[in-house]
Design a binder for these strands. Sequence first.
RNA 1: AGCGAGGUAGCUCAAUUGGUAGAGUGGCCGGCUGUUAACCGGUUGGUUGUGGGUUCGAAGCCCACCCUCGCUGCCA
Length: 468
Amino acid sequence: MRESAAAPELNNPRNLFATPSNHYHQGGRSMPTDIRIENIADYVGQEVTIKGWLYNRTDKGRLQFLQVRDGTGIVQVVAFQKEVAPEVFADIGRLTQESSLIVTGIVRADERAPGVPGGYELSLTGLQIVQIAEEYPITLKEHGIEFLMEHRHLWIRSSRQWAILRIRATIIKAIRDWFDNHGFILMDTPILTPAACEGTTTLFATDYFGTPAYLSQSGQLYNEANIMAFGKVYCFGPTFRAEKSKTRRHIMEFWMVEPEMAYVDLNGCMEVGEQLVSYIVQQVLEKRGPELQLIERDTSKLERIVPPFPRISYDQAVEMINELGHDQGVSIEWGDDFGAPQETLLSEHFEKPVFVHHYPTAVKAFYMAQEPDRPETCKSVDLLAPEGYGEIIGGGERSPDIEFLEEQIRRHNLPRAAYEWYLDLRRYGSVPHSGFGLGVERTVAWICGLHHIRETIPFPRLLGRIYP
RNA sequence: AGCGAGGUAGCUCAAUUGGUAGAGUGGCCGGCUGUUAACCGGUUGGUUGUGGGUUCGAAGCCCACCCUCGCUGCCA
């Protein structure tokens, strides 16, 4: 279903730019309708107005093709010299790349017309130039990544980046819809925090009126408090990691959704994960077909993403890695956490995301519940995306046992006082519970089939880059 | 943070052994009635990252510094 089919454009005041005196519209007809390009199929045969920017222009002499984008799509506008007013045709010749303009024309279905969605074009009847853009730095030719990152504020206009960020928005909407429709309630957790949640990674420090504070690296501990009040909750916000990671999988500021559920065990946790991830992928397939086509994503690989997902134990994963990785020199010893090569190897082996559960207790966070029969393993789970994309979910069942947690806090050298409220949760009605974190940018990278995470967010914060 | 690669026209890159710094693209001018990053002709375009050194001569060789990219570790 399209969001606003033929509904009037509520957020698009008709006379924002256009005025009768400088509008080339030929009199006699009714006023053209303001539309957005994503809805163009509903207006075949009608005269419409589109407000946007010039993406590209092909000058054929007495015939001009304009590629106009309006934020919702790209449409081809066609103008034959003999069919438009002389002053309009002269104005077309002045248009530079990214000039802002308001075009009016008759919508026509034509298979030759490129664009998003393609197949429709506008026969120009009127043109109003809003601004002639200065020489635009980003051409349709190839550019290096350094140049593009330096111009990220303009790069997001390019069709590929635009499509990726539209898919990102759909992924985020799917996440929120799924939780809202499955008994979860949104609980925002603080971004300014007094101490490390897990104490294992580097935090961005800031000053909180004279006392040190840190930017949140997870809302989980607060969510453990929230579930005792609300049952099933999720938080969704930015997360900050000051690790000096410089890989295609890392950014310093990323978005993470973290569900937490009372009275749910490790298996229930995996069930929620596979239902959520499947829903996200299917929503993107349904809502963002043209964008997926534009970025040339192989959608057959996404169509397979339906429950159930394979589940293997860490023990089995270690065996698989040592078998599969034999030729490539990839191996692992029981007790070690997976590195990038091990994760890639595993995730390339499955067509669907794969759960790996029961990691060694020693490599996971202090709050993970131990497996009673095998305390050297814990009720943790990661979800590895296919095609070599690696970890997109990390989580598991939390320990409800106050004595175990007190010992873990000591063992990890965490400041006991900062966790006193957390220990309270085990004093007053402690219950089995679990949860996980899903990294939005890694999910976008996988669904879009991207080489690097920097293209999954409008303005990525990378090691050594905070501009623009 | 460790290892590796690189910085030349607005952009993407080339320049043999140290010997006149070039192409494509963009911009500009002209041509073309179905282009898909259009095409064709002409034209414009340089403090070779910065500072020092070697040399008759340095984009290239030496020293120092700055910046970027890739991989790894850490993790989502």
